[in-house]
Design a protein around this nucleic acid. Structure first.
Length: 503
RNA sequence: GUCACCUUCGUCUAGCGGUUAGGACACCGGGUUUUCAUCCCGGCAACAGGGGUUCGACUCCCCUAGGUGAUGCCA
C-alpha cells in the first residue's frame, strides 16, 4: 500500500514549534519511505479561524523548506484540501451514521453544556456528556425541533466491548468502549464537523496510510477507530508522537520562551538548526551523531527510533545548534542573514549605504563565530554603527589597578595606536606587547581600558580589527572623550570588581 | 475523580538479559587567546521505588509513586 501521510494544521494561531515537529516527522516519514506528504487545512472552527494564521502556515513551511505533494496550493487527486470546502462531505457522512442508527441528534444548548462542565470541574470531576438524547424517541425530539433548536449530531459510542488499534510506537492499544469519550459531537449545530468526524472522513477519503500526531490524541484514537468501523472502513496505522514540554514539565508555552516558529525566525534561528534540533527531540539515529541536514533526515529517518517519553525543549541546545549552523555559512551568506537584524536594531539604513556595506563586509568575519542567534549581531556590532559616549568606570579599570592608573594607560595606548590603520594587526599587537613589557604592565591592562573606551564593553570582537572598522578618527575621538570622563573621577578610587577572588 | 500514556545524568538521548551504563547540550576545570567567542583536553552527573522471572536484570512481568494527557458544538 502506498504511504500517504498528512499534516493538518488548524489556522487558529501562529504555527507552533511543536506543530512544526509533528509536520517534520510526517514529512520525514513520507520522504524516507517514498510516500506522499499532504497538507490539509483544518479550518472547521469558524470562531477561531484567523486568516493571518493561514498565511503563517505557508510562510513557515516555505521558510523551513518543506514541500508537500498534495495541498490547497498545489492541488492533488484527493482535494479539496481545505475542510471548509468539504462540509457537504461531512454532512453526508454524518447522515449515513444517523440513518444507520449509529449517531443521533441532540438538542442541548452549547451554553448549558458548558455551564455543566464548569460546575463539574469546580468539583474536581469531569464526567463528559450525559447522553441525554441518545435514546429519546423521535416524537419527543420533535418538540425540540419545533422550538427551532438546531441539533448537533452525536456519535453513539458503544457502551459494551473494547476497541483496539495498532500504534507504531505504542504497540497495540486497547481501551474499553465505556472509557471512550461519551457520545462526542460529530457535526456541530452550524453544520460544520468536529475534528473527530472531519479527520476520519478525510483521512479515509484521502487514503491516508499513517497518522503521525501528538500523544494528546491517544485517548481519542479509540473513538476514531470506532468511527472508521462505523463507516465500514479500515483505520490507518497510528503513530502517537511524544509531546514537547517546557523545562518545568508543563506543556511548552510562552512562559518558557518562544513557541511560534515565527518568533524563532525573528530571533535569528536558522531553519536548518530548527529542523536538526527538532528532529533530535524524540528521535535519534545512533549513539553518536547529532548533525543532520533535512536531506539526510529524509533518508535516515526511521520511526522505530522514536522515543515514547515526552521531551523537554532545551533552548540552550538549540542555541548551540544554531551557532554551529551559522558558522557553517559563508561570510557573504552571514552578511545577508544579519542585515535585516541590523536594520531592525536601527543600526544601518535600509537600503544600506555603500559605506555601511563596506563596514559590514569587514565586520562579518569578526562576528561570524560569535553569533548564536542572528539577532546577537545588534549587540556585537552596536559600537561600530552607534556612538559610545558613556562608560562604566568599573569596566575601565584593569584588574588589580585603580582608576588613577587608567588615564596613563589610555594615553599610552593612544600613542601606540599612531598610524594603526596602515599596519597589520600583528604589528600593532607587537608594539603593544613590547610597550607592556617595557612599562611593566600586563598586555591585558593596556588593552582593556582601550577596549572599553572604544567599544563600551569588556567583550568585543578582536580589538585592532574593530578599531579599523571604526576608523582612526572615530577611534581617537572616543579615546579622548573617555579620557576626559575618566580624569574627572580619578580623584575617587575606583577598583574593578575582582570577581576572581575567592574567599 | 475516571481513563490512558510515560519514567536512564539538570536536559536531549544510546542501550533492545551479561557494558567500567556510551554520546551531545549545559555546567565546572585546564589549554590556545588582547576580552568575548571559536577550537582542543579533562571532569561532574543517571537506570523513580518495591516485588517477582532468571545463573544473571537498565533491559521481561506486576505493583506503587510521580509526571503528562484526555474527559469541549477546540484542534
Amino acid at each position: 500500500m502506498a504511504i500517504r501521510v498528512r499534516y493538518p494544521p488548524s489556522p487558529t494561531g501562529l504555527q507552533h514549534i511543536g506543530g512544526l515537529r509533528t509536520a517534520l516527522f510526517n514529512y520525514l516519514f513520507a520522504r524516507s519511505r517514498g510516500g506522499s506528504f499532504i497538507l490539509r487545512i483544518e479550518d472547521t472552527d469558524r470562531e477561531r479561524f484567523d486568516p493571518r494564521a493561514l498565511n503563517d502556515i505557508y510562510e513557515t513551511f516555505e521558510w523551513i523548506g518543506f514541500k508537500w505533494d498534495e495541498g490547497p496550493d498545489v492541488g492533488g487527486d484527493f482535494g479539496p484540501y481545505v475542510q471548509s470546502e468539504r462540509s457537504e462531505l461531512y454532512r453526508e457522512h454524518a447522515r449515513v451514521l444517523l440513518d444507520s442508527g449509529l449517531a443521533y441528534e441532540a438538542f442541548d444548548s452549547a451554553e448549558s453544556l458548558r455551564a455543566e462542565r464548569e460546575a463539574a470541574e469546580d468539583g474536581g470531576i469531569r464526567k463528559g456528556y450525559d447522553r441525554k438524547f441518545r435514546d429519546m424517541s423521535e416524537t419527543e425530539k420533535e418538540r425540540y425541533r419545533e422550538q427551532g433548536i438546531a441539533p448537533v449530531i452525536r456519535f453513539k459510542v458503544p457502551l459494551e466491548g473494547a476497541t483496539e488499534f495498532e500504534d507504531l510506537l505504542l504497540g497495540r492499544v486497547k481501551r474499553k468502549n465505556r472509557d471512550v469519550i461519551p457520545d462526542p459531537v460529530l457535526l456541530k449545530s452550524d453544520g460544520m464537523p468536529t475534528y473527530h468526524l472531519a479527520n476520519v472522513v478525510d483521512d479515509h477519503l484521502m487514503e491516508i496510510s499513517h497518522i503521525l500526531r501528538g500523544q494528546e490524541w491517544v485517548p481519542t484514537a479509540s473513538l476514531h477507530v470506532l468511527l472508521y468501523r462505523a463507516f465500514g472502513w479500515d483505520p490507518p496505522l497510528f503513530c502517537h508522537l511524544p509531546m514537547v514540554m517546557g523545562n518545568d514539565g508543563q506543556k511548552l508555552s510562552k512562559r518558557h520562551g518562544a513557541t511560534s516558529v515565527r518568533e524563532f525566525r525573528k530571533q535569528g534561528y536558522l531553519p536548518e538548526a530548527l529542523v536538526n534540533y527538532l528532529a533530535r527531540l524524540g528521535w535519534s539515529y545512533d549513539d553518536k551523531r547529532e548533525f543532520f541536514t533535512l536531506q539526510e533526515l529524509c533518508e535516515l529517518f526511521d520511526p522505530a527510533k522514536l522515543t515514547k517519553s515526552p521531551a523537554v525543549f532545551d533552548y540552550r541546545k538549540l542555541d548551540w545548534f544554531n551557532g554551529a549552523y551559522i558558522r557553517e555559512r559563508s561570510s557573504s551568506e552571514v552578511r545577508e542573514l544579519i542585515r535585516p537584524f541590523l536594520v531592525e536594531a536601527g543600526l544601518i539604513s535600509d537600503p544600506s549605504t555603500a559605506e555601511e556595506d563596506r563596514i559590514l563586509d569587514d565586520a562579518v568575519p569578526l562576528v561570524h563565530e560569535r553569533l548564536k542567534r542572528l539577532s546577537d549581531v545588534s549587540h556585537l556590532l552596536r559600537f561600530v554603527f552607534a556612538p559610545v559616549d558613556s562608560w562604566d568606570a568599573g569596566m575601565l579599570v584593569p584588574k588589580k589597578m585603580s582608576a588613577a592608573d587608567v588615564p596613563a594607560l589610555l594615553k599610552r595606548a593612544r600613542e601606540l595606536l599612531e598610524g594603526f590603520e596602515q599596519r597589520p594587526d600583528e604589528e600593532i599587537e607587537n608594539r603593544f606587547r613590547e610597550a607592556a613589557e617595557a612599562d611593566g604592565v600586563k598586555l591585558g591592562s593596556l588593552l582593556m581600558p582601550l577596549r572599553v573606551a572604544v567599544t563600551g564593553s569588556t567583550a568585543s570582537p578582536p580589538l585592532f580589527a574593530s578599531l579599523k572598522l571604526l576608523g582612526a578618527e572615530e577611534t581617537f575621538q572616543r579615546i579622548d572623550r573617555c579620557l576626559e570622563f575618566v580624569e574627572q573621577l580619578s580623584a575617587v578610587d575606583i577598583r574593578r570588581e575582582d570577581t576572581e577572588t575567592k574567599e
